[in-house]
Design a binder for these strands. Structure first.
Length: 462
RNA sequence: GGUCGGAUGGCCGAGAGGCGAGGCUCAGGACUGCAAAUCCUGCCACACGGGUUCAAAUCCCGUUCCGACCUCCA
């Protein structure tokens, strides 16, 4: 490829050339879901954004090891366990499935591995042991284990804060901390809650330890990219860095954070709560259209959600899809995906998807003009470039994951529509437009849209 | 209080000293029996006040407004 890939690094607040630790290989750790509720579109925006990164790295010739964790134990899961009267592990699995389904509906590639927190207790204990040995962490004796942040040589470098400037936590009930800013690596067992044995007593993981342990397990002491939502910078990622570096690991080279989905300017999870769940929106638009929408803004920009914007975005996508369908009808085959140099240049500039979208629009325009004039060479070129771009964005309509059902039922459908179109054609031939329009209206009423073209009448399902 | 990010045409959304972003909507036009689809044309915006410059949405200074995080939110 021509120009090198450049990425924004939250740690340096700058866009710089991406150089993997091992040439040709990229290790990515993405903070995945805490499975305590079904995913809303903010969750999957993160999934989609990093999926685009992954696909682009793959297309650029890298081998990518992509780790996306599932945090299947935390306070809220335990709360849900009470309110939903189910074991905590059943809650976790129930919601993990909803995430898996959402990712699948949006064509987010399955990670190379998807570790669960509770499957890595051993690694967490090892990490804590190391931290205690090095004097970075302490076990006050009640079963908790804390990281002593005052002792760290550096802390809060990612969020650029000063320890003393932080508003102190309100809950002063915890008297086991040496400093209110120390955070729990491990929490002592409370009655009725799940726990695992450790040298310091029975308990369960704190929030941050699992990611450090799992990233270390699968990607090693140093790896290339760590990603997640903007809101994870502090405390989650700061604490991951603190733990890992105190243990002597280099940890992540580049930190990437996606911005939120907002509504009326506010972070969606605040203003709309859980109302924008993925499965709800999939009743309004197809998965490929929702993905197109979520991927269309730059990953570091807030995406201002509205149903109108979603619908507009879907209309835009259907125009692209419409050209591809027409192109294939004219050509008689599916042009193979090709990565246009301009598209590559845009993607290499910190994944400038909006610029890439403008290029696709140009491709569509040129392609449609070529369809009108019958210039098959141009049609093929434009269609190939569009498919190449859509493939990276995870929105290729011919991706099998988006394939609509085929088989017997669609054969019958083809036949029925063809029958109706024959009738209409006959009516038009005898200038009986009243009848022909009636057929068109009736088809439209059941969701079959028809278009008369120079090459004949084509139809599609609305 | 600390840290970080915004403010762009009716809407979404890029860009970042001069050269049209793009999409959606809308208004004309071409094509069509009429539609639909498609193409063409138009709508020329950058929170406010100063300044620098031949030239500022873009740089500098100041102001206003909005949002996020501050120890279990993507």
């Amino acid at each position: 490829m021509s120009a090198p890939l450049k990425l924004y690094n939250t740690a340096t607040r700058a866009v710089s050339e991406f150089k993997p630790l091992v040439p040709g290989n990229v290790g990515i750790y993405l903070c995945g879901a805490t499975v305590q509720a079904p995913p809303h579109i903010g969750h999957v925006r993160s999934g989609v954004n990093f999926d685009i990164l992954r696909r682009w790295l793959l297309a650029s010739g890298f081998d990518v090891t992509f780790i996306r964790n599932v945090t299947d134990i935390d306070d809220k899961i335990l709360q849900k366990s009470v309110t939903e009267a189910m074991p905590w592990w059943a809650i976790a699995m129930k919601y993990e499935r909803t995430f898996t389904e959402a990712y699948r509906a949006l064509n987010v590639l399955p990670p190379t591995y998807e570790p669960r927190a509770t499957g890595h207790i051993t690694q967490m204990i090892e990490l804590m042991q190391k931290l205690i040995e090095k004097g970075a962490a302490y076990a006050p004796g009640n079963g908790d284990v804390y990281l002593e942040v005052r002792k760290l040589s550096s802390y809060l470098t990612l969020s650029n804060q000063k320890l003393d400037d932080l508003q102190s936590a309100e809950d002063t009930e915890n008297t086991f901390k040496r400093d209110p800013r120390d955070f729990a690596l491990w929490k002592s067992a409370k009655p009725g809650e799940p726990s695992w044995p450790t040298p310091w007593g029975d308990g369960r993981p704190g929030w941050h330890i699992e990611c450090s342990a799992m990233a270390h397990t699968y990607l090693g002491e140093n790896f290339d990219i760590h990603g997640g939502g903007l809101d994870l910078i502090f405390p989650h990622h700061e604490n991951e860095i603190a733990q890992s570096q105190a243990a002597g690991y280099g940890f992540a080279n580049i930190w990437m954070h996606n911005a939120w989905v907002t509504a009326s300017g506010e972070k969606m999870s605040k203003s709309l709560g859980n109302s924008l769940q993925v499965h709800e929106l999939l009743n309004k638009v197809r998965g490929i259209e929702l993905r197109w929408y979520l991927g269309s803004a730059h990953y570091r920009s807030m995406l201002e959600f509205s149903f109108e914007a979603l619908e507009e975005s879907a209309v835009n996508f259907r125009r692209i899809e419409g050209f591809l369908k027409r192109a294939i009808e004219v050509l008689g085959y599916r042009p193979d995906p090709v990565i246009a140099p301009e598209f590559a240049a845009a993607m290499n500039e910190d994944l400038a998807v909006p610029q890439a979208l403008a290029l696709i629009s140009e491709n569509v325009r040129l392609g449609n003009t070529a369809v009108n004039s019958g210039d098959t060479a141009v049609i093929a070129t434009q269609a190939s470039e569009i498919r190449g771009a859509l493939g990276i964005l995870g929105c290729d309509p011919f991706d099998p994951i988006f394939a609509s059902d085929s088989g017997v039922s669609s054969q019958v459908l083809d036949g029925l529509v063809a029958l109706a179109l024959e009738q209409r054609k006959a009516a038009r031939a005898r200038k009986d437009f009243e009848s022909s329009d009636a057929i068109r209206d009736q088809l439209a009423a059941i969701g079959v849209i028809i278009e008369d073209t120079a090459a004949g009448t084509r139809w599609s399902i609305n």
